[in-house]
Amino acid sequence: MKLTISKSANEIMQQHAIELFPDECCGFLYGHETEEVRTIELAVPVVNSKDGDKKRRFEISPLDYMKAEQCALQNNIGLLGVYHSHPQHPAIASEHDLKQAMPYFSYVILSVMDATIADIKSWKLNEENTIFLEEEISNEQ
């Protein structure tokens, strides 16, 4: 499936990734989808609650997750995925990303090299939930 990312969602993710560099940032992605295209309209930063090396790991707390689901229900918008950054690493989903990946979600990864955005890719589990497939991103102007 194609993934369209709104200008504002893109800006928020990129700012967040640069601001937290060299730590990993993370947040939720909301929007709508049809059968052909998934559109990310809103990116909402959340705290990286990882207890430990935030340069290489991120974690979202269960309470932040519950709030995100509530927000989606209340605003009649879809919770479509999660973004996080890879400081000094490519935007390729890692073995840690795959191990804990949920079906259906888009996992947008921002590669941050020396405090600038180097690349953005999005990944989604296949139907069997065994591997990540890259999603084709188109940015809204």
């Binding site: 990993e24 993370c26 990882k50 290489r56 790991r57 991120f58 974690e59 979202i60 269960p62 997750y65 519950m66 999660v82 996080h84 890879h86 400081p87 690493h89 390729i92 989903a93 890692s94 073995e95 840690h96 990303d97 191990k99 804990q100 990946a101 949920m102 996992y107």
Partner: peptide, 11 residues
């Protein structure tokens, strides 16, 4: 029902 949302970079 809350899934763990976590990950990171390559080792």
């Amino acid at each position: 029902i809350v899934p763990a949302i976590a990950g990171g970079t390559y080792d």
